[in-house]
């Protein structure tokens, strides 16, 4: 927790549900159900002003519902929310003026040109492109060459940037982005996160969700979500450092055989395929990682796997997520949220 930029905001003295001076969003024990489906269960979190806050979790974790509550589009079944000091249920009109929102699907009119889309959203939010230009200028510079092209004919990355311009044109105090990088190529994703970082540096508070764990490192702090619950809220570094057991990346010619062999090991806590490699977690935290790596390598070689390579590695957010998703009730985030 030492590298949390604003640890004071989490001090126990702040009464639950009340916004501190520097909190842009305070959610207190939010629950939401669609009929029998519980989209959110008891979610509490705070987003500090000026923070780039990521909500990370797989599809169906409740991210979109959470964002719709924050943006006043959905009234929660239970719990309270304060966004920019306003209640999204009562003061939704005042709040909507100050929000920038980019819904899950880029809300663009494909039959209108780039410029027409932006002009339209500017009028809708009661402003003009000229007034909004000082905020959107860095992004608009990349879009301007295509300003007459229909939005439907843009690449995914360009659509994403246009949608961001549309959400920013009225200079909101809080930017909420629901999975902005889903369906966008890797290069555009990197560029987009750089843009978000720059906007945050300009003082904007950003709440962003993503299903890609590898994007967590771009955020100041992240909340891990699964099945409507928040599993943990941490800085990405603290989250990775919180991984309690030795972790190894395992390579070899036969992934299936390795998976079977490692899962059968009495010391295995978990084995997950990560692209071309396996991430193996061993329960023996007292043994030297190097010694463990050698032992695992020998085990696999005796099972007939060729070209075995075992390396001790530092955990990433995905490892943390996978581990917490296995045992949600001992997740460190729970004590904090409660």
């Amino acid at each position: 927790m030492s590298d949390d930029p604003r640890p004071s905001a989490f001090s126990a003295s702040t009464p639950a549900g009340a916004a501190g001076r520097d909190d842009a969003i305070v959610l207190h024990e939010l629950s939401h159900a669609f009929g029998d489906v519980h989209a959110l269960r008891d979610v509490s979190l705070r987003v500090h002003a000026g923070e780039l806050f990521g909500v990370i979790g797989p599809d169906g974790a409740g991210k979109t519902t959470l964002f719709r509550i924050v943006t006043s589009l959905v009234v929660p079944s239970q719990g309270s929310a304060q966004v920019l000091g306003l209640d999204p249920v009562q003061d939704f009109r005042a709040l909507r003026r100050r929000l920038g929102y980019m819904p899950g699907r880029f809300a663009l009119y494909t039959d209108l040109s780039v410029l027409e889309n932006l002009t339209f959203y500017a009028t809708v939010f009661g402003t003009t492109i000229e007034q909004g230009m000082r905020i959107i200028e860095p992004i608009w510079r990349q879009l301007a060459p295509f300003s007459d092209r229909r939005a439907g004919a843009l690449s995914g990355g360009m659509k994403q940037k246009l949608a961001l311009c549309c959400a920013l044109v009225h200079a909101p105090d809080l930017l909420v982005l629901d999975e902005p990088t889903t369906g966008v190529d890797a290069v555009s994703r990197v560029e987009f996160w750089e843009l978000l970082g720059r906007l945050r540096d300009g003082g904007l508070t950003i709440l962003v969700s993503t299903p890609y764990m590898d994007e967590a490192g771009r955020c100041d702090r992240v909340a891990l979500m699964q099945e409507g619950r928040v599993l943990a809220i941490e800085t990405p570094a603290a989250m990775a450092a919180s991984y309690p057991l030795p972790l190894f990346a395992v390579r070899g010619h036969d992934r299936l055989a390795m998976l079977a062999a490692l899962r059968a090991s009495p010391h295995a806590e978990s084995v997950w395929p990560f692209g071309e490699v396996l991430h193996y977690t061993d329960t023996r935290r007292e043994v030297q990682p190097g010694a463990l790596a050698r032992e695992i390598g020998e085990l696999l070689t005796t099972r007939g796997v060729r070209d075995v390579e075992v390396q001790p590695i530092a955990a990433n957010v995905e490892d943390v997520f996978m581990r917490m998703a296995q045992t949600p009730h001992v997740a460190p985030g729970q004590e904090r949220a409660a």
């Binding site: 909507r96 003026r97 929102y101 880029f106 809300a107 009119y109 494909t110 959203y121 939010f125 549309c166």
Partner: peptide
């Protein structure tokens, strides 16, 4: 269907 209604709803309109 396009999701633009969501955006319009969040607007002050």
């Amino acid at each position: 269907e396009l999701g633009t209604m969501e955006m319009l709803l969040v607007s002050p309109l």
